[in-house]
Amino acid sequence: MTDLRPSRRSLLLLAATSLPTPALAQVYPDRPLRFVIPWPPGGTNDIVGRLVADGLAHRLGQPVVIENRGGAGGALGAEVVAKSAPDGYTLLLGGSGSLTINQLVRKRLPYDPATAFAPVGMIGSGANVIIVHPSVPATNLRELQAVARAANPPLNYASPGVGSTGHAAGALITQVLGVEMQHVPYRGTGPAMNDVVAGRIQVFTNALAPMQPQIEAGTVRALAIAGPRRNAALPNVPTTGEAGFPDIQAATWYALFATGGTPPDRVDRLFAALSATLADGDIRKKLEDGGLDVEPSESPAAFARFVAEDAARWEPVVRRAGVSVE
Rank of each mutant, 00 (worst) to 15 (best):
A233Y: 02
L234M: 09
R313V: 12
N152D: 11
L4T: 14
D293Q: 15
G190P: 10
Y28M: 00
P228Q: 12
G43H: 03
L91I: 13
L60D: 01
D112T: 13
T17H: 10
Q26C: 13
R31V: 03
V36L: 09
Y28I: 01
S159V: 05
L256R: 08
A25I: 02
L14Y: 06
L141E: 02
A255F: 12
G97I: 04
E298P: 00
R108E: 15
A222V: 12
T165R: 11
P22L: 11
L76E: 15
L274V: 01
S10V: 15
A150K: 12
T259H: 06
D268G: 11
L278Y: 02
P228W: 13
Y186P: 02
R230W: 08
N156L: 08
A127T: 03
H183I: 01
L278H: 01
N140L: 01
G55E: 09
W314A: 04
S10I: 15
T189L: 14
I215Q: 06
G291C: 11
R31H: 13
Q182K: 15
N156E: 03
A258N: 02
I123R: 07
W314E: 02
V129N: 02
V48P: 01
A276M: 07
S297P: 03
T219P: 11
N45I: 11
D54F: 08
V132W: 03
N236E: 15
Q145Y: 10
R34I: 08
Q249T: 00
G124N: 04
L60S: 07
A198E: 09
T262R: 07
V105T: 06
T90K: 10
R142L: 15
R149M: 15
V36Q: 05
P40K: 14
P110A: 01
R221N: 13
A276Q: 12
Y157L: 10
G178A: 04
V65Q: 11
P185K: 02
T239C: 10
S299V: 14
D195M: 13
G261T: 02
A85L: 14
P160R: 01
L92P: 00
A75R: 00
F204W: 07
T2I: 14
L274I: 00
R50K: 13
P235D: 07
A302H: 11
A217N: 11
G77W: 13
G170T: 03
Y28Q: 04
P238F: 06
I130C: 08
V325R: 11
L11R: 15
A224R: 06
E79T: 14
V147S: 07
A72F: 11
A114Q: 15
I66W: 07
G227P: 09
A146V: 02
L104F: 09
K285N: 10
V196R: 07
A301H: 11
Y157M: 12
P185E: 01
A198H: 07
V147N: 02
V48F: 10
V120A: 09
A85W: 05
P263N: 10
P154W: 01
G121L: 09
V105N: 04
D265Y: 12
I123F: 12
G73H: 08
P246M: 09
V294Q: 04
P6W: 14
L155C: 08
D3M: 05
K285F: 13
A75K: 06
S297L: 02
F245E: 06
L19W: 05
A116E: 03
Q182D: 15
R313F: 08
A82D: 01
